[in-house]
Each structure stands twice: as structure tokens, then as C-alpha cells.
Simulated assay, not measured.
Amino acid sequence: MVSGIATAVVAAFVWGGYLYALKRHFSDYSGAVVAVVMNVCATAWYLPTAALYLGGFPAVPSLDPMSLLVTAGTIALAAAGFLTFMHAISDGDVSLVAPIAKVVPVFVLPIEVLLLEEVFGPLQVLGVVFATAAIYLANYEGGPLLGPFRNLASSRPVQLALLSAACYAVSDVGKRLVLQGIDFPGSIWIPVSLLGAAVVLAPIAYRDWPADGVRDDLPLFVAAAAVVVVGRVLTTFAFSVTSASVASTIINAQAVVAVVLGGILLAEDGFRMRLAAAVLAITGIALIAS
């Protein structure tokens, strides 16, 4: 479990840097277009590199109907979570949406306890709370502290953000089942999940495809896709050796990494508060690992 926690911490930094790159270089593209192009490029990076390193790939396991449903559902829910988040952002302020959309661990923990009979000590539960609070604080930009939650009953962006978090949470638990329960090889899961999400999002990407295409920024897509491959490998390993609650909590701290990078490199507002959030996240991770 300790190796899984350390890997998840590294993954959080990798994905946080990736989020920063998305904000800086890809904000003019549709989310579906970014996902499809990035996933295809990442697969092109991963397959030859992994084949060379592994000396080939293991055979795709034979899946019964239930295992196939869990695998497909995990991929589809991750794609749905991404698109729902993008719709929430387009309908409302980031400061309103992001704190809600990043509370994925709050959903993952009860799902694992109720459905997978996972047992967590009080320190681990407190760690999840701290890390989730850090994500909220990192995205909080003023106003009433509980404003996003009070708006839940009437705000469509907040409702969409909460739905996004729920989709990602179920997908995270499904990812654990695929990698640990079904024993799907991680080396095969990475390209399957990348291309599966691209297939799911392809119709929307086709509709939103820019008139000038993506040729001018293709080198940026290829470079960012290499980061995606590293993040996917780290994430897959973390979910294969530890619980989804622990892995999801730590990896979702990527939001803290992203806002700290934004504060330093882009001079964004609220940097001191976001730096405090980083300290809170580290405290939560220490509790989870205890």
C-alpha cells in the first residue's frame, strides 16, 4: 500500500502539471477535441514504448459479460465525468464549480465501504476529509464559505459539477475492480482506457472540430500526450495496489498542484490561500498513509 501511496503522490504532481498545461495551451479547444487528440497521441506514445520495455504485451483477458460491463462502464463514466465538468465550467464560474467537482473521494469512500466492505481507520477517514478540504480551499476565491453547497438546490452548474464528481467516483471504484478484481493487466488497461474514452467522445469531438483543425498545435498535443502516458502509468499502478479511496484522494490533489503552479507562473489571484491548501493536502496524505 505504501508503494501505491508514493506512486499516487507522484501522479498528482504529474496530473497537476498537465492541468496547468491545459489551462495555458489548450483552452481554446473543445474538451472533447482535446481528449480525443490527446488520447490518440498518448496511445501512439505508449504502445511502442511499452512493447519495447516489456518485450511484448500480455494477452487480453477473457471477460465474462459482467466483467465486460464493468470495464466498459468504467471507461464511459470517466468520459462522462470529464464532459459534465466541462459543461459545468461553461455554465458557471470556475470558483463555484471546481470545489464541488473535485470532491470525488467523498463519494469513493462510502461506495467502497458499502459495496466492497473496505475498512478504514479513523485517521484514514480524517485524511480523506483533510485532502478533500484542501481541494476545496485551493479553488475557493471568496464569498460565503459554504456558498457552493447552498447553491446546490438551485444552481445548474453546481448540480453538473456534483454529477461530474459522482461519475468520476464510480469510475475510480470501477478502475479498482478492473485492475484488482478482474485482474486486467495494467499494461493493456492503459491503451484500452485511452482509446475507449476517445471512441466515446469521438462523435462530440467531430461536431466541435475547429475549422482550422489542430495542425498548428499538434507538437504541443504530442508533447502533452507524453505527460498523459506517464500519468496513466502511475495512476494505473496506484489503483492496482491500493484502495480506490486512497488512490483517488491523493491523485485528485492534482488540483492543488495546478493552482500552485498557476499562482507562481501565471500570477493568478488567491495564491496564499492555495498555498495553505497545499499544506492541508500534505497533512491529509500523511494521515492516509499512517
Rank of each mutant, 00 (worst) to 15 (best):
M1C: 08
G4F: 03
G4E: 07
I5T: 13
A8Q: 01
V14D: 08
G16L: 04
G16S: 03
G17P: 02
Y20V: 06
L22R: 13
L22E: 14
L22Y: 08
K23R: 15
R24P: 12
S30I: 08
G31K: 00
V36D: 05
V40I: 13
C41V: 13
W45F: 09
L47C: 06
L47K: 10
A50P: 11
A51M: 13
L52D: 09
Y53W: 15
F57E: 12
P58N: 12
A59F: 08
V60A: 15
V60Y: 14
L63S: 05
D64Q: 10
S67V: 04
S67C: 03
L68G: 12
G73H: 05
G73Y: 01
G73K: 04
T74V: 01
T74E: 04
L77I: 00
F82P: 00
L83E: 10
T84N: 05
I89M: 15
I89Q: 09
S90W: 09
G92K: 01
L96M: 13
P99M: 00
I100Y: 04
K102S: 11
V103W: 01
P105C: 01
V106G: 02
L109I: 02
E112Q: 07
Q124V: 04
V125H: 11
L126Y: 03
F130A: 13
T132W: 05
I135A: 11
I135D: 06
E141G: 12
G142C: 05
P144V: 12
L145A: 06
G147M: 11
G147S: 10
F149M: 12
F149K: 08
L152I: 07
L152K: 08
S155C: 03
P157K: 05
P157T: 00
A161R: 04
A161N: 00
L162C: 11
L163W: 10
S164R: 03
A165M: 00
C167L: 02
Y168R: 01
V170Q: 04
V173I: 10
V173D: 06
G181S: 11
P185W: 07
S187E: 14
I188C: 11
I188Y: 03
W189M: 09
I190M: 06
V192C: 10
S193I: 11
L194Y: 09
L195A: 06
Y206V: 15
R207P: 02
W209F: 15
P210M: 05
D212E: 14
D216T: 14
D216I: 13
D216K: 15
D217H: 13
D217Y: 13
V222E: 08
A224K: 08
A225R: 07
G231Y: 14
R232V: 04
V233E: 11
L234W: 06
F237P: 03
A238M: 06
T242G: 12
T242W: 04
A244S: 06
S248D: 07
S248Q: 03
T249I: 01
I251W: 01
N252F: 09
N252M: 13
A255W: 07
A255T: 12
V257P: 00
V260D: 01
I264H: 02
D269W: 02
D269E: 14
L275G: 12
A277S: 09
V279S: 04
L280G: 10
A281W: 00
I285K: 04
S290V: 12
